[in-house]
Amino acid sequence: MNLNIYLGMLHQAEKTLAESFRQVAAGHGDEPDVHFLCHTLAQQCEEHSRLLHPIVERYGEDPSDAEPERLHAEGLSSTRQGPVGLLRDLQDLYLLASLVDVTWTMVKQAGSALRDRELLEVVERCDGETSVQLRWLQTRMKQAAPQALIAAR
């Protein structure tokens, strides 16, 4: 059984995303909607890790990740400035959240095959929220992009 690899990936990805949301919140305090919502969404990611915990207890997780990383998703080391910087930071969050999203989907596939009702309930709640995170990021980026890419000084 290799589910532990994916549970490890998921746990790590949620943790990275939470930290990155907080990083963006801290770096973009002048955009209050981004600032406050990123804090809220960081809490959501941490709650996902908490909800995942009993599943991890049962299947274990492989934090060392037996599969070597080829694509590195280490989170945001710092934030950028200005309108294009905001757009880029949100886009980075989008990539990280996409990784979380697709990882949940794969875990769900395994959960379905395992007929693990508890796991499927956790996935439904968490992946639903992750997909809203993605939709919010896209909504906010689509709003910001024309101004940032055309009119910003």
């Binding site: 002048d30 955009e31 200005g82 309108p83 689509k142 709003q143 024309p146 101004q147 009119a151 910003a152 000084r153």
Partner: peptide, 20 residues
């Protein structure tokens, strides 16, 4: 119509940043 019309607080933010 690529996004919702810009709300007032964001209009002032763009003015603050110099793009409006």
């Amino acid at each position: 119509h690529w996004a919702p019309p810009t709300h007032a607080m964001q209009i002032f933010r763009y003015a603050e940043q110099g793009s409006i």
